[in-house]
Design a protein around this nucleic acid. Structure first.
Lengths: 192, 192, 192, 192
DNA sequence: GATGAATGAGCGTTCATTCAT
DNA sequence: TATGAATGAACGCTCATTCAT
């Protein structure tokens, strides 16, 4: 009766639905995502889900935003020399990959889908920012003499991103492969 | 009348179906793969497709085999010093990526799906062979003094594979990113 | 507007579907049973049928239960001497056969199918009970001197069941054949 | 090349197909009858079957004729008094039921189907002849004083037929039930 | 906000039959 | 005679979405 008793459940429900969809995508991919299923797992009717997300696509978008937000934290609040920034950045990502590998699986899933679905291409823009930030840090480091003039900041940024993004392909099935790749990258960069 | 006009129909049809399925997966992903559509685009009835592939899964498997076969050529018939082998290998892959980027998109799609579909995990085994081959070449090179003792062959092999496999995420939308990443990798390896 | 017009919709629909399936089996056999047709004849979409019965098999099972329930009434609430019990039992079945011959047609259809479909073998168990009941009544009658010691209760029960079950083969096309057969059986039993 | 070398295979093939269809109907019913399957089991292509039987229905008809022919033998070449005729007839049928129960299963299957399929109603006519023959034998016996005047030949014939036809429902799953029923019938008729 | 009922469009697959070879 | 290829029509079932309550 008192609406204030139910009001708090609404945002929680939204988040629960996003979480459930996120985990389902990680486990079964976009192919295996059924709105009915995730509604049922949250304990509500399939039709009720449409009160929170008018369409399946809207739910997916919310998952995308959730994933992006989680990942952005990996490059937030970093301080130190450029070499330290790169090192901390890669370490953060690596830790995240160990603690929650599914995050990267879903990221890859989204990335792949973004090639066809214009709505998901937000993720592309995020990567542009990310690439810019990496390039800037590397350039700063080169100017400070941390890295030799042979290191091309743009190229190195691309290598880092490609490696991290590709991680979703092994994060669950063969995590040591990622571990090794990142380790090698750090050695090449001299940031170990 | 002329039997040569129709004789090749059968094997061609099979191949045409594989090709069409391959392109559809590249364009729309596994989600967008409909046997009826594939059949229609090849100009046959949906039921006829089942003459060539008893089930949708069989068709997918044929596509997987096709992709693997195409990629295996990139590491075949290479000769020279370890550094040359690595260089040629990466160049072949890079050329393939430029001439047929969809190949890598489909590869990534398959890779992702293989995490859930045991039948597709053949791909994983192929990668194991690939990793062994790369490790061996790198180890040979290190023993020959081409690379310093600091280079860990296993780690470097993982870095190369992760980078190449992740390429499917940009091969179509942002190919220069791959170009840069590979270029950087070659510089680090000194195989430019 | 008037809720009483739509309120009974749900349970009625279920029953209407069972009825329609029952009649279709009687008319066209299991071969001719199409869920789409049943749904259409009840005035709903084919997909809606799956709200009431998740699968075709579930619908069939409901029909089986319906048939069994209808038939069980023929041996319920009977009172009197063993001879009277047998007489009333056969009369009830005979009346049912005249008023609703399709019931026996469907029963035979189910019986035949039960030989291959384990799920339908519930019918078999019902027959075991029926046979036990008949045997007991006949034995009681023999002990009371109603039937001579020459009458083997088990054999006679088998004869009665075989005759009644076989009735489905003529109930519609040649009902007098059943009428005659039952009449003869009653004369042999002296229960006319 | 020499057509006489292949000629003998043709009628054999026809018969083999009928046999295979007959056994399939016994095992899986009409629902489970697939022309492709029985063609394959005989070792020929599904399309080739249509050279022997233009349509599935034609094949089924051939099976019906086969079943009828096998059953007719049970009342052929009988000699003796009316009581002996009835006894021998029932014994023949009983022996057949023990040696080849599937024959009766298929008969029931056909009988049931004949209610809807006019083409299969040949079987009904056969039963008419059968009923006439039984009635005549019983009438002869009554006139000769073998059976009392209380026995109605028509009714008794109906009882016998109903019992024998219904046998297909148990011939395989519960053969002792038929054994008991026939035994009881013989006792009532005094032909043991 | 929450639900059961309902639906249209579609999916992978089956199958008797046809036909050119 | 024998076949592989092909097909139309259907089938049981799924699913995101809508809507009255």
């Amino acid at each position: 009766m008192d609406p204030s008793l139910q009001a708090p459940t609404r945002p929680d429900r939204r988040h629960a639905l996003i979480q459930m969809a996120y985990q389902t995508i990680a486990k079964k991919g976009f192919e295996g995502l059924r709105v009915r299923d995730i509604a049922a797992q949250v304990g509500i009717n399939g039709a009720t889900l449409h009160h929170y997300f008018p369409t399946k696509e809207a739910l997916i978008q919310a998952v995308v935003e959730y994933v992006i937000a989680r990942l952005r934290l990996a490059s937030a609040d970093l301080t130190g020399t450029p070499a330290e920034l790169i090192h901390q950045h890669l370490r953060h990502l690596y830790q995240l990959m160990k603690s929650e590998p599914t995050l990267f699986v879903v990221l890859t899933e989204i990335h792949l889908r973004a090639q066809r679905d214009p709505i998901l291409q937000v993720i592309m823009q995020q990567e542009a920012y990310w690439h810019e930030w990496l390039t800037k840090v590397l350039r700063d480091g080169r100017e400070q003499g941390i890295w030799s003039a042979h290191l091309d900041p743009t190229q190195a940024a691309s290598a880092i991103i490609t490696l991290v993004e590709g991680a979703g392909l092994w994060a669950v099935t063969l995590p040591q492969r990622i571990e090794q790749a990142i380790e090698q990258m750090e050695q090449w960069l001299g940031t170990t």
